[in-house]
Amino acid sequence: MTILPHLLLTTVGVQALGLEGKDIALAYGFGYGIDLVDHPIKLALYLRKNGRKNEKNYHWRTPLQEPVALCWIVPLSLYLGTPVPALFFASHFLLDYLVGYEKRPWYPFSTYSTEGFLTRFSDGA
């Protein structure tokens, strides 16, 4: 999923829930910012394999934005005393799972992979 829908959904969520203060920062961090942290992680691997060539279906994702991350985001939400991180992270990965490209939802605990819910719709990225 491209960054724009995440940004839009997060902004709508922040407005709809009337969030304030640190909750806004958490909402943007977990609803949108997680992409900015996650994708550069595999940049070195991508460049080693492809150089500057484009490989459209490269697996950029890491478990930071897969459902397995709920294992650490839900406890973090409890620690912070706000449901915002878990809620906005769930909105992030649900949006990702609407479009069709490879995802490994439970890696490293399971090697199961899926294309998402609406496999006919490509990412378009």
């Binding site: 595999k42 394999k49 478990p63 890696y107």
Partner: peptide, 29 residues
């Protein structure tokens, strides 16, 4: 203890996935 171990979990999943991706890429090359 909570934050250090939670960070270790998140980082651990990324490390494992990075190793898998490196191996997939190596085989493709």
């Amino acid at each position: 203890i909570f934050l250090a171990n939670l960070t270790a979990f998140a980082a651990g999943t990324v490390i494992a996935d990075y190793r898998l991706q490196a191996e997939i890429d190596r085989q493709a090359m």
